[in-house]
Amino acid sequence: MSGMSGAVALNTFREAVRDRVLYNLILFALLMIGAAVLVGQISIGIERLVIINLGLSAISVFGLVMAIFIGVGLVYKEIEKRTLYSLLARPVRRWEFLVGKYVGLLLTLVVNILLMSVGLAAALFAVGRPLLRSDLSILTAIYFIVLELALVIAVAIFFSCFSTPMLSALFTLAIYIAGVFAWEIRDFGALVHSPAVHLAVRVVYYTLPNFHNFNIIAAVGHAERVPFSLIWQNTLYALLYVTLLLLASATVFSRSNLK
């Protein structure tokens, strides 16, 4: 990442902090405290499962909401408020600006997720359960959430380069939902006999980002081991997809007329 992108990224992070984006952590903390108190009373022997499932799901949902709703406004807001004018009058290339905005939001989410993870660990500790070696897979699940959100931000930024925040949010959400059900789309293709439809479904399946592979919350809840191959495959997949999406965004954005 260039120094230009770094400066933009730090400012994006600062903006998020000053816009009180991290206030969602209070809600998360309340949720965790409530859950810890509640499972202590109603569940026998499944505290770990409930807390892990609830905690990781909350981290994922909170992150997703932030990634979509901040992501779609990242570029649009700078154009709409014309703050981009002064910035692009400096020796900053448009792609450097885009990468900076992307990294800035990713940094915001990573910090957010790290703090929520501490909350999750505290909740697990509160229900009186010793930490086990298998709990390391919780970290893997959190890492996958980061990868998933890295991909969601890239999708949101791509749409925001040529669309309004409202439409971009809808498109990004639609892509996310379709991506979560990517396997179902593939299976649907297998049921159809028409070669044309089969081909179309395969194209859609391979084009859509596959979010299904990032979700290992249920497996982690049951203390299942996460294969190492999945970790590097997911990492590579997210890296490749994010790079392609940022390249596409930069291509669109580099020739667009600002208002």
């Binding site: 400012n11 600062r14 903006e15 000053r18 816009d19 408020k81 014309r82 703050t83 004018y85 002064s86 009058a89």
Partner: peptide
């Protein structure tokens, strides 16, 4: 460059 009616990051 000074844009017309400049607006900057108000935070």
């Amino acid at each position: 460059y000074l844009p017309e009616q400049p607006y900057f990051y108000d935070y």
